[in-house]
Nucleic acid binder design. Structure first.
Lengths: 194, 194, 194, 194
DNA sequence: AATGAATGAGTTTTCATTCAT
DNA sequence: GATGAATGAAAACTCATTCAT
């Protein structure tokens, strides 16, 4: 039986609390104390584990990215065709784990942060490039030279739907969002085949 | 000759400084003093004219929205057909005034703010609904019942391209962005006609 | 016909506004702008006429003191006997002009101010001494060597009734207050005669 | 041995510093920084323990009130007769702890504050009512229906003596002040018996 | 005479961060 | 490992006061 260890437990709790707090505040203007209280520890402990506040935020961001990455990877492994791989990416983007209001808020906040904080920017770029590469790779056999272009469109649309979701008064409709992107793809690929 | 009036001058200067400062900081975490200094006045004067910081931010937001509104309205007046009206909206979105890094940064920052500040949210919603109405109205004769759906896709894509532009290492390529949206429309409308 | 002159008019308006504002705020924490607005002029004009804020406050204080002085002097002139003179002072203290909530608030605020501002303290002392002298003078033929002591008691009781009035939830009852002091005097003077 | 506990220590120090600072300033226009410096801590700590400045002021007020309450209660317990109880209240009012210039200044400042700040007003009213009830209760067997009236006179005189003491150039003479009130009582009660 | 414009000097309050225990 | 205690630094906001017009 692996002793779970207090530290990893605390770290997880703090990261979860960070995301929840960001969602509740709707921005990164969240105090370390708020986060710590939510995680049931002292703010000093948050510093002890993560160093500066920025590091905690980065860790939360990394957590979100990794979660998405795992989710997407799983779906990609199960996808037999290029077209299915594209759907896998879309499904992961609008999957239950990603499209929760909580996650979307945090996501958007991190995007803004990336404009001013270099480490956050680096993180997002790695993710963006990986996503782009995956899309292009899957699109290549279906759309040839238009692949990068379509990938760009797909990525933009996904991001745009997140943005609107973050703001939206309407309840999140992951299915409708996914369908919109799928349709975009279908139009492009049908046109290609024609 | 109308006396220029100092107040409108100062207000304009402060709003301009606000947008510039937001861009430079990459977020709304800008102090009133920074903004005031940039406008060449004291922070007290900024408070004198705008009240609280939030009011200044809102005024800047309103300014951006109004600018876009005027730009779009001008282009729409010159558009003879529904399809041209759609292009007018897209052109306004990616026009020189709107797609400057400066404006895009501020835009995104305001989106985040709208998550927590009700007045900002109201402002963005008004803009979003107006845009949506314009798009649907122009799409109706071309796409019938699919109009709302396509409008949603167009709006999402535009927002997504802004988001990516805000983050992007690449220099802004308004033409490419606009082309992507135009193409999206063409695909939908071609399919419709077919 | 005496041209009233703008200046005296403005000064009066400002002093009245000062007292009203102090009453409304319940303390001297009133801004010059508030006072000026209430008087219908700019704050700059208040400074123009009175110099610093302290000077305006002092002028308002002086106004209150002078008003009380005039009121008391009038009543004293009409008082035929020492006992009547004592009643005159009491009547002036609780007269309509003095015992208004407005005046009482200001009065108390000035008492506090006198603790830290020398000019205000000097002003109040002059008034206190004059009042004391008047009381002693009237008491001497009635109470002999006990005059200063009784004067002290009367003055304290008047001040105390003001204090309680300033705080009181009950509506001001000038008659009851005056009666309490009169009774105090009667007891002393009856005892003296006995 | 109970660990002294830093928090209670700091709270006490801050409250003491508040009262001292109010006395020195002669009003509540005292900055949190001044108070904190006097207590030997940072202003941030004052906020940490008391929240807003108002809360610190209220705590100081409550401290004064409680101190007086304890003092009076002790003396009342030792008073065998109604008349002795009245003297106990007077003695407590002018006792060494209460009639210090420091305390009197603060007292007066709080009275003014009560005019504009509801919580302060509530606090003072509780104290005023309790005092009134005590006086009336002790006076009832001695003065019958005149008890409330005399109680009012006693309370007013005490407050008035505080007021004059706050302003006074003369050194505080607690004995003389107390004697004045005692005499007032004696006159009333002698008259009653007669 | 009168004012709008403008600001410097402060004041409260918040918060990330450190440190002794 | 964990925390309460403590603070320096900063930020929003206020206000008396000055000055050009």
């Amino acid at each position: 039986m692996p002793r779970t260890g207090r530290e990893p437990m605390r770290r997880r709790a703090l990261i979860g609390a960070t995301i929840a707090a960001i969602h509740e505040a709707g921005s990164l203007d969240v105090t370390v104390s708020q986060i710590a209280r939510r995680a049931g520890v002292s703010s000093a402990l948050a510093h002890h584990y993560f160093g500066a506040k920025d590091d905690l935020l980065l860790a939360a961001m990394r957590h979100l990215l990794a979660e998405f990455g795992r989710d997407a990877a799983g779906r990609l492994r199960a996808a037999p065709t290029p077209r299915a791989r594209l759907s896998a990416v879309i499904a992961a983007s609008f999957g239950a784990a990603q499209f929760r209001p909580e996650t979307v808020s945090a996501w958007l906040a991190f995007y803004v942060r990336a404009q001013s904080a270099a480490p956050a920017r680096r993180l997002l770029r790695v993710y963006a490039r990986r996503l782009h590469a995956t899309l292009v790779h899957a699109l290549r056999p279906l759309a040839g030279p238009r692949a990068p272009r379509i990938a760009e469109g797909v990525a933009a649309m996904i991001d745009g739907l997140y943005l609107r979701q973050a703001l939206g008064e309407a309840p999140p409709d992951a299915a409708a969002a996914a369908a919109l992107v799928e349709e975009y793809l279908d139009l492009h690929l049908a046109g290609a085949r024609a």
